[in-house]
Design a protein around this nucleic acid. Sequence first.
DNA 1: TTGTAAGCGTTATCAC
DNA 2: GTGATAACGCTTACAA
Lengths: 354, 354
Amino acid sequence: MATIFDIAKKAGVSITTVSRALNGYSDVNENTRQMIVQIAEDLNYYPNAAARSLQGKKTNTIAFAPLLNDHQEAEPFFKEFTGVLALASFRHDLSLLVTLVGKNRNLEEIYRELAGTGRVDGIILADIKPQDERIPLLQSLKMPFVAFGRSLDYERLNYPFVDVDGKAGVAKVVAYLHETGHRRIAYLAEPFTLAYARDRYDGYRQGLETAGLTEDPHLLGQNLQNEESVATVLRPMMELPEDKRPTAIIAGNDYLALHVLEMLPKFGFSPGKGENQVAVTGFDDLPFASFLQPALTTLRQPITSTCTVLLDLLVALIKNQDEPASLLTPGPGTTLVGPKQVLLQPELIVRASA
Amino acid sequence: MATIFDIAKKAGVSITTVSRALNGYSDVNENTRQMIVQIAEDLNYYPNAAARSLQGKKTNTIAFAPLLNDHQEAEPFFKEFTGVLALASFRHDLSLLVTLVGKNRNLEEIYRELAGTGRVDGIILADIKPQDERIPLLQSLKMPFVAFGRSLDYERLNYPFVDVDGKAGVAKVVAYLHETGHRRIAYLAEPFTLAYARDRYDGYRQGLETAGLTEDPHLLGQNLQNEESVATVLRPMMELPEDKRPTAIIAGNDYLALHVLEMLPKFGFSPGKGENQVAVTGFDDLPFASFLQPALTTLRQPITSTCTVLLDLLVALIKNQDEPASLLTPGPGTTLVGPKQVLLQPELIVRASA
DNA sequence: TTGTAAGCGTTATCAC
DNA sequence: GTGATAACGCTTACAA
């Protein structure tokens, strides 16, 4: 690999001049610059990234560090998200370092390492927990980061995040179901170990309240993360006497909804919005949602805008800038709940299942 | 951030000793070592990655550099693949640098840069073209790489790759359809700008030949990449007189198959394996395939094993080792077509559509 | 406008 | 066992 040294020798100038010419400084003779640029091209020169960042420059790389949670059902969403994020980073001219974080090692250590080795300029956190130790950690490490999701103490900790408003979203679903005549609406909740699960459940409760309905503990399934757990919870629910039985089921995500769709017929029910059917809804709008039978009514996560805003925020942070341009005039469905704290609205996609 | 210098000072030794102690060299006094390790831990020390790689060490990072092709229909597969690759890299203790390659810049330049900046130890190529300029380029650059897919001249160029045997796969589908009574089998081909598209089409022709059928140009759709192009090709095909009309349609990928499934009813046909239905098959087995109506019969890409082998090969290459262990005893469905050249069999997943 | 030299944090090569 | 010191490739004061 060619270095500035090679270029300097060939051009008969010092490495300083080469460096300046290649970095677009003004105090270089135009002729000298042209010659240097030409030689660099001939030699297929590219600045060594390590040398550059060692010397204090940016790495132009950001890390995406989601948690590898036990329930692989979150995987499709992770894949979806990673893909979109890669595309968005690409547009920002940033490299994306995908760093999966498993349970093999101390969580804290991994992030310390990520920050300590200086390989990235910033980090995108995901799978935020209700109390997330990574947030104060990265703050104390002074490593720029943006969270996808928010912990309970987001106001106090005052860190930048982008979150999808699960609470408002699910409340909207409850309102929709209520309008369409449903009075006994069940909710299937994911484990509350991730912040968004609780948030969505809160939306369910808020929705009930707004609709003037009272919460029925028989209509709540908790800690659901796979087909099995759904079965365990769904059976007793559907075996309730007719006047107690749910006429609609809100699942915390599309996967849970998928299981419900598949399972209902086994319990003698048919999913859908018809007279004697059971309405079913999901959350995420994963690619398969529209192909289910019946097609799933669900809340669509605005993945693309989420990634865009995440990156805008992070880039601004890295450059020590203020609010990124994209947030000065927030579009519809975008709320700034604090400085650099953004809430995006999921979109209710009504299909055949509810 | 703490450096070996800080540790040295605190321990009252030289940085040399610190480096040796931390890198597990044998010639360090056990007491000294313990003290140093302890201090390093206290100081939350992590070696600076840039300094390390500047010294000629490995970066422990590999790049995944797929092409960003025009037809976004390939996107779901890319997302799927990236996710799995991230998981696999994680297991190999490698960081994954996702570098999307668009058309904004000279293809060659991007790869030169990737190799020249020394940020990665190796590259995983994807979306291989029939004649792929990246392969000789990386060879001449002496940058370790493995291709997912193979160009036409893979024997001559003799580079390491993992490919899914599209030819054998599609031939298998033709055989299956032939067995189930079909005699007029159509094929919908993707643009031949990517190597696998041609490979799959070759499988179609081979399948016909083996079955003793002759290829009918009316039953071939070419250059298909979206709903529109499928419509354009499908309509005339289905308007052929009954004794010319296809009774089965093989689509080059699941997306094309999806469009066929959706479009057939509009032309007055029903997809499926019934008496008066039109059989439809796909390729990939994307997550939505099983949820289509009717569920799609398709060839499943062995994404997980593909990623595993890709990484095994690349790691071996980086370490200058020979065949990786996983290839010494190739499992079923794994063929070594050359040294470090691996062909994996797709699995025929029979569902309701054919 | 250009050059000299220091320094970024490591590891490697010698001495001791 | 341990310590100076050079070297990796680059940027950036500071000089000239």
